[in-house]
Amino acid sequence: MADKIKLTKKDRFAVAWRSQFLQGSWNYERMQNGGWAYTLIPAIKKLYKDEDDKKAALKRHMEFFNTHPYVAAPIIGVTLALEEERANGANVDDTAIQGVKVGMMGPLAGIGDPVFWFTLRPILGALGATLAIGGNILGPILFFTLWNVIRFAFIWYTQEFGYDSGSKIADDLSGGLLQDITKGASILGMFILAALVQRWVSINFAPVVSTVALDPAAVIDWANLPYGYEGIRQAFDMVGAGYSQSAYRVTTLQSNLDDLIPGLAPLLLTLASMWLLKKKINPITIIFGLFAVGIVGYLIGLF
């Protein structure tokens, strides 16, 4: 191996530019996978001259991926570095690359959503909107300019940061650092996936299991509270002291399940999907099946 194939700054910029279209083919099966592969195409074109290597690279980047569209940039940077090493003969396997992607996507989405969607956009949006409500054209112009400057600067510099860090990881092959990272990434990946299943898959069973009439002494006596704010204050005090606001305690199937552990149904659904996928059932079939279950379940009052 005489020359190392390197990704130039121009190649990396082409990737960063394409990453802006990451969510273009967002789908319920593998989410951002199409956009991820689309983003990496300039790098894959440069790195893999051999036709089979190229196909393998394209296929491994069509796997499931989903994160906040801007914080994908550092993950892309690390992936570029790992792919570069692989193309130059280093032993970076598919699991390592997928492990790094999955391990980073959850926590980074946890940063991107609050920072961009719930802090920066509301602030810039409110700034622009305040001017715009008065009919001032500066409102939209300011919002558009500031947002896009911050956004693209973030994408480019964090991608470069990821690329530099990724190169350092891959340089230290003899120290077994990469093997450690591979294993560490799959540990982190599994840990985070469990949390994502628990927090982001939502199922809510509506049926009422039992309705129990409570002892009148444990219920707030709404009819005989003092009038006005004094009554409101007393009601809040009573709620705080554990009095019930209604004469009946309603237990739904969901609250029974939550007593076992919240998220049990999403977990079982995920395990069932894994099992179906292992049985070579098409993911699309499962997805349409679940939409049908949702509609039927709503009609019969299950959800």
Binding site: Y28, E29, R30, M31, E63, F64, N66, T95, Q98, G99, V102, K183, S186, I187, G189, M190, F191, L193, A194, L196, V197, W200, V201, S202, I203, N204, P266, L269, T270, L271, S273, M274, L277, K278, P283, I286, I287, L290, F291, A292, V293, G294, I295, V296, G297, Y298, L299, F303
Partner: peptide, 30 residues
């Protein structure tokens, strides 16, 4: 019904990745 289904279908995506990463060694972390 579609909204309820939308809450559930994300499980399929996670199932795809877990199938790919899972090994006896890493299941406890899940």
């Amino acid at each position: 019904g579609m909204a309820i289904g939308g809450g559930m279908v994300v499980a399929v995506g996670y199932a795809l990745v877990i199938n790919m990463m899972a090994s006896k060694e890493v299941w406890p972390f899940f």
